[in-house]
Amino acid sequence: MKILVCISNVPDTTTRIRFTGSKKLDTAGIQWVINPWDELSLTRALELKDANPGLVESVTVAHVGPVSSEPTIRKALAIGADSAIRVNSDAHDAYFVAAQLAEVVKADNFDLILCGIESSDFNGSTVGGMLAEFLQYPSVSAVSGINIENGNLSLTREIDGGKELLSLAVPFVAIVQKGIAKEPRIAAMRGIMMARSKPIKLVEPVMTEPLTEIVSYEMPPEKEACRFIDADKPGELIDILQNVEKVI
């Protein structure tokens, strides 16, 4: 079984987001990282490979992005991915990215494809599902667990108020969320050394018209300053919540 983990390159979650004008992210000082959910997927993929050496042949990461994303791809290789594929293009929109990833999957016949539930930049939750539809593969969303038992894959899917245990045959796309792995795996020194010699295959994009376009950004509305209420006067707070805010 060949696993493909799709990774997105995003600003570190503590980054102060700013724009130059209203259309362009100000990238000065931004630390770029693997999207948190993708980092967890990669971790789980590697755990599955470690635990099932005969069955899981390889773990590859794929990324659609310009050459400036390579440090993030290297990081994925350092964490333990065997190889990487970069589609050499800006990520115009989710549809465009999914169309590129579909070509990557077709070219190498990956069996299990992992995508994160969302990318922390555009919060779209769309690439994984789109990819599956392009490929006409089944997809399962809100996956919080992937296991291999006797050579078969089983998935845990989060549903409102609980969980389901699912089984299905490869190939398919699993769209994963919290729970899929406990902690992201950290690159060890040896991994970082080895990553330098691992291949990043470069692929040129296929023609795809994006379906959406970001026309402008704006900052969240300014919050009014916090009104402090004496901790010894709980009645005052409750009164405000009841009669001014009308939320209780």
Binding site: D93, A94, Y95, A98, I117, N123, G124, S125, T126, V127, G128, G129, M130, A132, E133, F134, S139, V140, S141, A142, E158, I159, D160, I175, L211, T212
Partner: peptide, 20 residues
Amino acid sequence: NTGKAVAPRLSVKLKAGVGA
């Protein structure tokens, strides 16, 4: 969960852009 599971697939099937 359900909307996130279905909307992107619909997008490709109908070639319709998504506002998520």
